[in-house]
Design a protein around this nucleic acid. Structure first.
Lengths: 336, 336
DNA sequence: TGATTTTACGAAAACGATTAAGTTAAAAAT
DNA sequence: ATTTTTAACTTAATCGTTTTCGTAAAATCA
């Protein structure tokens, strides 16, 4: 690898001059700068991030902690969109991203914090993990700038998809379509689920509709088996709901199949709605009514916040940024 | 940050001794090692990857180039699975992954090779890009160990999903179900497409079935709009096919919708098949007949090959690794 | 006992950059 | 003409490791 030393030898100047020239400092003559830049290009010089960061304590590399329980990892169709947006935004700002190793099997592995320090991440984004993992808490309490997604820690920045408003809007939409018997198969216990759940209950209460206990079911996110079974239970009720809400669009497929298995049609016989607004839901038949989370906004806001935290720590607010979604009407909820 | 210097001060030994002790060299006394390790833990020492790699020229960091034309990026439902598997395997081996910045907008951006050198990647995996991009070629011709996925470069290792055999098996399956009028809406031009296409033609020829030109259509991968329109054309034919093959599972949705829009049923009125074996295809109704690419195998093979190339360059073969898939029968192809 | 080997450690250079603090010569000011 | 300022560099320390070579003491051997 050609280094500054090589350039300095060719140009007959000191290494310091080369460094300053390439970093465009003011105390280097214009012709010298030009020559150094030319020679650098000719020799095929490439800077060395390790050496640079050793001196400057900046890596321009951000850590991504991204390890949901279900191990869907990168294939998660909500977070992969968020991450994609995050990645695009940080790259536009000259940062790279590296995943924080979360394979917990390996002997001699580092904790999340150790790993982050080892790599010298300028900041870290945390999404889609067990937020009560002690390792996560250790990382969050560290000196490293952190932005979390869909979870709020004390004194830390968070970007949060507005599940409260989202669920309210969705229920309101279903209500406006005339439904009064609304069932909700919610996801497994988590902050996200709790927000959606309480918003569901509250909104129903405000709208004056009653939710019998049998109308509530639980199935893990993205689990079609669970929603299939829960849907069957709902359809078996003496007084079944006219509309079923699912944990997410993918899981809704389990419900769709359960409904079709009985020879019932959507939305003629029963209405359904998902959550996420995933790309594929637009192509279901009927088109799935869903709440589209603004993944692009969530990812880019997280990126911008994190970079601000790094580059302008004094003037950057510690706050939570709420990103709202929107109801995609679709055609899976019938007007009654 | 606490460094080896701090440890050496506390223990009253030299920095060299600390380094050797932590790296378990044989020329350090056992009790000294034990003490140094203990103190390191007590002080909360964390090693510095930048300093280490500066000396050793090894980063234990791999570059990932992953930038398809459609910019689906991380949300691509074939490559995100491949990448997830790749990531898991390299992490088990103590490597991290960093994306090679592919936002081409940024002024002063580095080329892929420059970026890779800058970060000091020990190796690079290339997937899902325009393989004829000069920057990609520059990277491939460099001294950096490279493994490509689904594309073969001269003198480079590649892991390739067997599209030849895959398409043959799929056509054979459809043939065995009794179909003789098979249409194929293929993806946009690429090596992958070409392999599938020629395998399609060859298999049909071997089976003695004729493929009229009107039975061939083209639509970009993952494009439901395109497959919708192409499907309509096929259905309009005087002598329509009994089975339609689609570029991929997602794109098949466009076809499904076109078919349903005419009030036709799958597979009663017409049969269809996808390609990929994506998770969601298992939940379509009817369950989509498709060729499941072994994404887990592809990712882990690529990871192992790349690591071998890095750690045992002398003894590692430059070869292409072919990963075969399997037909998922599903229920979208009718026996006739 | 004296010579030799082994064990356990230290000194110092090096990796490739950045940067504070000089230094020198030319230009500007007095 | 002398001093001051400015422009354009250079020197050298430093970041945190690794690693080669050297060395003193202890252990082994003759």
């Amino acid at each position: 690898m050609v280094s500054m030393k090589d350039i300095s030898a060719v140009c007959g100047v000191s290494i310091a001059t080369v460094s300053k020239a390439l970093n465009d400092h003011k105390d280097i003559g214009e012709e010298t700068k030009a020559q150094i830049r030319r020679v650098a290009k000719e020799l095929g010089y490439s800077p060395n991030a390790a050496a640079k960061s050793l001196k400057t304590n900046r890596t321009y590399n951000l850590g991504v902690l991204f390890a949901d329980e279900a191990m869907s990892g990168l294939t998660h169709d909500y977070f992969s969109y968020v991450l994609d947006s995050f990645k695009n935004t940080v790259e536009e700002n000259g940062y790279d991203i590296t995943f924080i190793n979360c394979s917990k099997k390996r002997a001699g592995r580092m904790s999340y914090l150790e790993h982050s320090r080892y790599r010298g991440f300028d900041g870290v984004v945390i999404a889609c993990v067990d937020f009560y993992d002690p390792e996560v808490e250790e990382l969050v309490r560290s000196e490293i700038p952190v932005v979390t997604i869909d979870h709020l820690f004390h004194n830390r920045c968070a970007v949060i998809s507005d599940n409260i408003k989202g669920m309210r809007d969705l229920v309101q939409f279903v209500y406006d379509m005339g439904h009064r018997k609304i069932a909700y198969i919610h996801g497994a216990d988590s902050a996200v689920t709790q927000n959606r759940l309480s918003s569901f209950y509250r909104t129903c209460e405000e709208l004056g509709i009653e939710v019998p206990a049998q109308y509530m079911g639980e199935a893990p996110y993205r689990d079609t088996r669970g929603t299939f079974e829960e849907t069957e239970k709902l359809l078996d009720l003496k007084n079944p709901p006219t509309c079923i809400l699912y944990p997410d669009d993918f899981a809704a497929l389990g419900g769709i199949n359960a409904i079709h298995a009985r020879g019932m049609k959507i939305p003629e016989d029963i209405s359904i709605a998902g959550y996420d607004g995933s790309r594929i839901a637009r192509h279901f038949e009927p088109q799935l009514t869903t709440l589209k989370q603004d993944t692009k906004q969530i990812g880019s806001q997280a990126a911008e916040k994190l970079i601000n935290l790094i580059e302008r720590p004094k003037t950057t607010l510690v706050e939570q940024i709420i990103v709202t979604g929107e109801v995609i009407p679709g055609t899976s909820v019938k007007q009654i």
